[in-house]
Design a protein around this nucleic acid. Structure first.
Length: 246
DNA sequence: AGTCGACTGCAGTGAGTATT
DNA sequence: AATACTCACTGCAGTCGACT
């Protein structure tokens, strides 16, 4: 299984000098030029950040942006000391999962889909936004709507991908809200594992024990969890399938 | 009526600061 | 000491007015 999900212009390679202010990173390009890139991942990026690591960045032509460069991937070594490229752009995860849904790769679990809407208000006072709101095909015997929350997962221990990698109040809130949607709707947590070396997924109890407890509560209440694994390349991303829970 | 661009507000996270 | 707020920046959805 090695389907191409998304193709893009080849990314620019460089070396990480430093990450600072959570959303900025200085990167040395092969030409020697040092640029500041936007880091669309404000988490701690546990196990990824290493000065001198190879990184890949994209270039935007949008005149609105202060920083044309966006940090997309970082290279780390796996258990066998082999290079693994990890996607760190959390905004990209949603695009990726949308493609996966559109390609019907989750149909076996969530059923056939009629419509997809992004960023739909839901929960208490409609103050939260769900990443995807899906309606089932009329031929589907299960008429329930489907709420999907996407989490970008980059932390790994051995071959087990873990989320979260830090205490996340918002993540906890999302789990509670997903649980409250059951049984009127189907609620689905999709883990977007942006590295190829993960064989399993488990909640990151060590980083956020409360999240781990809420995760198991939501799971036993009927929440569906779909850990999706991807392999990141310089000019495309390929599908590595759905991984089991551990 | 439909399309387009400009604009607004929200989400994401944690360090630092202000307030209780 | 604990809690609440602000800030940093981008991308997206939604709204509104101007225009075809």
């Amino acid at each position: 299984m090695n389907d191409r999900i998304i193709d893009f212009d080849p990314l620019i390679e460089g070396v990480l000098i430093k990450r600072y202010k959570r959303y900025l990173a200085d990167i040395a390009l092969e030409s020697g030029e040092v640029v500041t890139a936007h880091c669309a991942n404000t988490g701690p990026m546990k196990g990824l950040l290493r000065e001198g690591a190879k990184v890949r960045i994209s270039v935007s032509t949008s005149p609105k942006r202060k920083l044309p460069f966006t940090w997309e991937q970082i290279c780390v070594l796996d258990e066998k000391n082999e290079e693994v490229w990890v996607g760190i752009n959390t905004l990209f995860a949603n695009k990726l999962i949308k493609k996966v849904i559109e390609k019907n790769l989750l149909d076996e679990i969530i059923g056939e889909i009629e419509t997809i809407k992004s960023e739909v208000p839901y929960g208490k006072d409609k103050k939260s936004r769900i990443d995807f709101f899906l309606t089932p095909k009329s031929s589907n015997p299960d008429k329930r709507n489907i709420y999907i929350e996407v989490k970008n997962t980059t932390w790994i221990r051995g071959n087990v991908a873990l989320f979260p990698d830090t205490v996340t109040k918002r993540g906890q809130k999302h789990l509670i809200e997903l649980k409250e949607l059951i049984p009127e709707s189907k609620s689905v947590l999709v883990l977007c594992i942006t590295r190829k070396d993960a064989c399993f997924f488990a909640p990151g109890d060590e980083a956020d024990p409360l999240y781990g407890n809420l995760f198991r509560e939501s799971l036993s209440a009927g929440m569906i969890t779909i850990p999706c694994s991807f392999e990141f390349h310089k000019d495309h991303i390929s599908w590595r399938g759905i991984k089991p829970l551990k």
